[in-house]
Nucleic acid binder design. Structure first.
Lengths: 234, 234
DNA sequence: GTGGTTACAGTCAAAGTGACTCGAACAACA
DNA sequence: TGTTGTTCGAGTCACTTTGACTGTAACCAC
């Protein structure tokens, strides 16, 4: 409840925000991780996270964590709450309740200090090529990835991964990277264009890539938040 | 982040859990509210909520709030996190970060102390027939209702509103109450039965209600968590 | 019995989907 | 310049799913 407790002494917790920022590069889904500076966590990687400060919203804390720990200023990136992790024993220091966020951003290069801050391929997480994860972030990260995969189905969130204007080929590459499947280009086009408010034509053509091909039309994000009907995974 | 802060003094917040418990009675979607005992909130209603105690998971706190404030013991009720509300000014007492939960339960009577604890019709909230809401719970409650409406589409969550065994008429009444629409009985049956793992036949027939009608087959919950394909709202 | 209700099976047309073909428009290369 | 390979965009076809609807079964109240 949110009224003041009248019986037991008021107990407080440290409240933190951890951000799982996803992006796409070269057809692969990537996750931003940082090296904690705690000596006992040398060699491990973690989601960028910060304690919540007084007079700061949780969204503010998420942006500050990205900025202070990864040097990323992305005020326009999609940011949404994932869930809150509050098991009493989840943190060695003491009771820390952590509000996890999911952030999506178009392709961007690794931050400058890429020995301590870098994007990791989601496919490599949990393998011998992947990082060792600190805290309970190996529980948070799968939730974040599944959230992104799921929301691509019934929301227009895929457009958060591309810069405007974009082509339908670029948008399809988002779905293919996040879901890890190949989609039929023709059927994808038919579905996206026929879903009201998903994308709107922006005019003009985008030059083909180094592999050639016919120039593609350019589109912008539409007004729809939810897709009717949904883009179901194969 | 969840590592110890090394620069600024450790700030802590009060962490609370608020529970939005929904049920269905007589074809109407109901929400559990309690009267806070704070004198300055006389006449107002709030979601049952409690501060998180040491050595207690957030789920534990949710169950404790239902038990201590509403006298409800529902260990088998569906319980899931909704989201966390942490605006600095959301609470007059001071900084309180509140983890909101959504709980679903089959039809149940009002708790004993129904002057201070009762179910309110969701349709009456925000009208002159409805309660005056305390704190920022007028922001939490719409989120909870929309979550329930949305999850009925792509999960088997509707079965959390009925006792086993149930009839397809009872299950259809859940969808109609939560979505506030009328559904075609025949098409609903075809969809539910053909969705693998949604329900399994339990054998036997349920006697018709006071309004007569042919006896209905009885079903139990299936093993599926997500529905493929989804039960989309009309 | 009659009228009213619900349960369940089935039909039919419209809409949506997956797999596929074809031509247009480009790049790279001989 | 012509050929090959690529992507883009339009279109076809069979199949599935959906919404609206009809008909019969089995109960209640009177």
């Amino acid at each position: 409840m949110t009224r003041a407790s009248t019986t037991s002494p008021v107990s407080t917790c440290a409240v933190a925000v951890d951000v799982a920022m996803l992006t796409i590069r070269e057809g692969r889904l990537l996750l931003l991780l940082v090296e904690p500076d705690a000596p006992d966590l040398a060699g491990q990687w973690a989601l960028p996270g910060r304690r919540v400060q007084d007079e700061e919203t949780l969204d503010d804390t998420a942006h500050r964590a990205l900025h202070e720990l990864a040097g990323i200023n992305a005020p326009d990136a999609h940011l949404e709450q994932l869930r809150t992790y509050g098991d009493p024993a989840r943190h060695a220091i003491g009771r820390v309740v952590s509000v996890a966020y999911l952030a999506l951003t178009p392709t961007r290069d690794d931050p400058v200090d890429h020995d301590r801050v870098r994007f990791w391929a989601v496919d490599d997480l949990g393998t011998s090529h992947g990082p060792v994860l600190a805290y309970d972030h190996d529980r948070i990260i799968p939730d974040a990835i599944e959230r992104a995969r799921s929301k691509l189905e019934y929301t227009a969130l895929a457009t958060a991964f591309v810069e405007e204007p974009f082509t339908l080929g670029e948008l399809r590459a988002v779905y293919e990277a996040v879901w890890g499947v190949r989609l039929d280009a023709g059927n994808f086009r038919r579905k996206v264009v026929s879903t009201r408010g998903f994308v709107v034509e922006a005019g003009g053509l985008a030059p083909p890539g180094p592999e050639g091909g016919r120039p593609a039309r350019r589109y912008r994000r539409g007004s729809a938040q939810r897709l009717h009907p949904a883009m179901l995974r194969p």
